[in-house]
Design a protein around this nucleic acid. Structure first.
Lengths: 187, 187
DNA sequence: AACAAAGTGTACCGATCTGTTCACTTTGTT
DNA sequence: AACAAAGTGAACAGATCGGTACACTTTGTT
């Protein structure tokens, strides 16, 4: 197996889908932007949907790896790591091509809850929840699961608000709220 | 001017766009679902984009009216009205056809910040922010603007989380967080 | 050198997209 | 009764959609 060409396709398709949307990015545009022939694409993926699912898998891996690592780099203490999630988000929001969360967009374009793309997006959010809940447990905070859910609500809110762009500093607003919420979960 | 036919079109188009998405809803499907001829549609709106903008205006009006009224019905005190926003949201989330926020979806499909549809979605969020900030001022809470922004972060987070459906009670989680945040803004 | 796997380029399929045209019918007003 | 505004239905245009067919070239392995 030579994974390079396939991985190159998925990587470049990710960029195209992220900045143009799923429905709005046709396979011919993908040919143009990736430089990979359509014949080759359809040898690797039977349908466009299969390609999108592969793109989402890559995005899940990249994003979670990046976020978890960045949180660890920004703080040692697990409690402070939870808070520093919002500093990591701020870095993301201020990147030039920031266009919101790929999974929120995927679930916007594939709304049916039973659709594979929708389900895979939900899986991504679930994994984040598990991780944050584990961190809250390590930090010996009260009611770790509800706390994790609250922090993630702030995260999702900040992501869409930063994209809608009607607020300057969504990440720092979310961080301030997180500190206040977290204070209520101290023993 | 007979506004009935045009309003009927916008109202029915709203339903179709909300449950199918914007790109995924073609004009021919709109003809089928509204019972209004395509010729007539294009006499009222020069492009599909114009129709979408009219749909978003209606949605903005309906949603803000509904939310503000519901908050007033659920509580007298302005501070409690802010909290009861999340009870109103819970009612919305549990409606059968709930599919998330139309403006978030619009900004997902029309990502460019300079696009009229994107800008109009941002306007909607801004108006919510102004209203909540006014309420926070009336309630004599500290730092009303930052507080309003935090509550709205929780609102947006709850909306997308309820749609992604990976959590049972997004509205109540958001409400609990809101209470904790609001506590920190008491004098 | 030989062979198979992998990739390319182009033309094509039927369906659907936004938007237009045109001849016709309904409706409201005077 | 007459007239204009508003609405209808169906065909059509040109582009694009996801996906396929086919003949060809490149690449890696032995």
């Amino acid at each position: 197996m030579r994974p390079t060409k396939r991985d190159e396709l998925v990587q470049k398709a990710l960029t195209a889908f992220y900045s143009n949307g799923f429905n709005a990015t046709g396979m011919d545009m993908l040919v143009k932007e990736t430089g990979i022939s359509k014949t080759s694409m359809y040898k690797h993926f039977r349908t466009k949907e299969d390609l999108i699912l592969a793109v989402l898998r890559l995005r899940d891996e990249n994003f979670r790896n990046w976020l978890y690592r960045r949180m660890e780099e920004l703080a040692d203490d697990p409690k402070e790591q939870l808070i520093s999630m919002f500093d990591a988000l701020e870095e993301w929001f201020s990147e030039p091509g920031y266009k919101g969360c790929m999974f929120i967009k995927a679930s916007s374009e594939y709304q049916d809850a039973s659709h594979p793309i929708h389900k895979q997006s939900a899986d991504h959010k679930r994994m984040l929840e598990t991780h944050m809940s584990d961190l809250a447990t390590k930090a010996r905070l009260n009611n770790p699961e509800p706390l994790a859910r609250k922090l993630l609500l702030l995260k999702e809110g900040a992501i869409v608000t930063a994209h809608l762009g009607h607020t300057e500093n969504a990440a720092q607003d979310a961080k301030a709220a997180a500190v206040q919420v977290l204070h209520a979960h101290n023993s």
